[in-house]
Simulated assay, not measured.
Amino acid sequence: MSLTERAEHTFGGGWTEIKLNAVSDYLNFYTRALQARPSPANPFETWYIDAFAGTGDRTVERHAGSLFTPGPGVMERVRLEGSARRAIAIDPPFRHLAFIEKDPNRFAALESLKTEFPNRDIHCVQGDANDELRNIFTSGPWVQSGRSGLQRAVVFLDPYGMSVRWDTLRQLANTQRADVWYLFPLHAALRQLSHNHTALDAGKRGALNEVFGTADWEEHFYNFNVPQTNLFDFTAAATPARSADPDKVERFAAGRLKTIFKFVSEPIPILTRHKLRQFSLFLLSGNPQPKAISLITKGVTAQIKKYGRQSLPLHRVR
């Protein structure tokens, strides 16, 4: 049995394909747009960095047969290309590809990509995504003498839960040379915002402080001016009422991202099979140059039009 067979990465559904399609479409636009810039003789060195790469593939279960097959049918396991393999297939190609994965079994399968594609500059790194992203952008080829100004990257942050630290986002913004696709964990953040204010323990507060990069979320999502119901009861403390829904959390997250990134796209809603919003997919950039922002806007507009909010029936986005 091969390493890849032993380390199947089973996750997602139709919503995963939307996420991967949006990113892949942008990658195709990105390498075409930059292949002769700033000049054909001296083009940018393009990077694709996948911070939560998994095995490079993903396995899904689906019904075999067709509508005309008698009986209940059977389930089959199908291996599909994950974000890493899709990035390798982009043409014109990225000059450098870096895949980060913490899990040792998934990482072992991921490393096989280097053998499968020996002519590509593929770096597989095992470790925490936050730490390894810092290493990539502060050392090695990215900061090499005489070429650092020509390095350009697309970073894909598809985290497990709320595992992207705010200082990681700030560092990516400060490069001013990285476009960042960030799958913001909308549902996970909403779940941490307890309906009962007293249930906000140190763990929940710490997680929310990290994902938003501030403690101001508490005043934003809880009403501390709850009217007193008993004029003669001076001992009972009013419980702050929660005021949070997916739209409000998404808007607050977008506002926070705008404090460190020069460009923050309209988010693409990523829905689960139950048609509830699980994530918000943002494209971010710290590049302050008007020409760069114009190009990024052009590239992401097509994805927002195809996969964004306006492409969905209103009752599905809630």
Rank of each mutant, 00 (worst) to 15 (best):
W217K: 04
P72E: 13
K298Y: 12
E8S: 11
W181L: 06
A98N: 02
L3M: 11
R177S: 07
T16S: 15
I136F: 08
W181A: 00
N42T: 15
L172M: 02
Q171G: 02
P118A: 05
D131V: 14
F184G: 00
R309E: 08
G161T: 10
H315S: 15
V78K: 02
I90K: 00
K204M: 10
K305W: 02
R165W: 09
R85K: 15
G206A: 13
P290L: 04
T16H: 09
G286Y: 04
G308Q: 08
W142K: 00
I293S: 06
N287T: 02
R165V: 05
A189P: 01
N135R: 15
A254R: 09
L190A: 09
H195N: 14
R318H: 12
L157V: 10
D57Q: 13
K258G: 15
A236E: 13
Q144P: 03
S139M: 02
R205I: 15
E218I: 14
T46W: 05
A237L: 15
P40Q: 12
R205Y: 10
Y48W: 09
M1Q: 10
P40N: 07
D247A: 14
A109P: 05
P290Q: 08
S24M: 04
P185I: 08
E111A: 09
A236M: 08
G308W: 02
E76R: 09
Q228M: 09
Q144V: 09
A237H: 12
F263N: 04
P72M: 11
D121F: 09
A173Q: 03
T214Y: 07
K291T: 13
A53M: 06
W47D: 00
L80A: 06
F156H: 01
R242H: 10
W217C: 05
T272R: 10
E210Q: 13
I260C: 05
R170V: 15
S280E: 04
V317A: 06
T16N: 07
S311H: 07
S2V: 02
L281K: 02
F29A: 06
R147M: 11
R106K: 15
N28C: 14
A109T: 03
G54M: 01
H195M: 07
H187N: 12
D91N: 14
A253G: 04
A302K: 12
L193A: 01
D128W: 03
K102N: 09
L27W: 05
T10R: 14
A84D: 01
V143T: 14
D158Y: 04
F232V: 06
N105C: 10
V23C: 01
R134V: 08
Q151W: 08
P290R: 10
K291E: 15
D247Q: 13
Y307L: 07
G299N: 06
A207R: 13
D91Y: 11
L27Y: 06
G127C: 06
H187A: 15
S243L: 14
A51I: 01
Y30T: 00
D131G: 11
K298F: 12
A41D: 15
A189H: 06
A199R: 13
L172V: 05
T297R: 12
L97G: 00
G140K: 00
T59W: 14
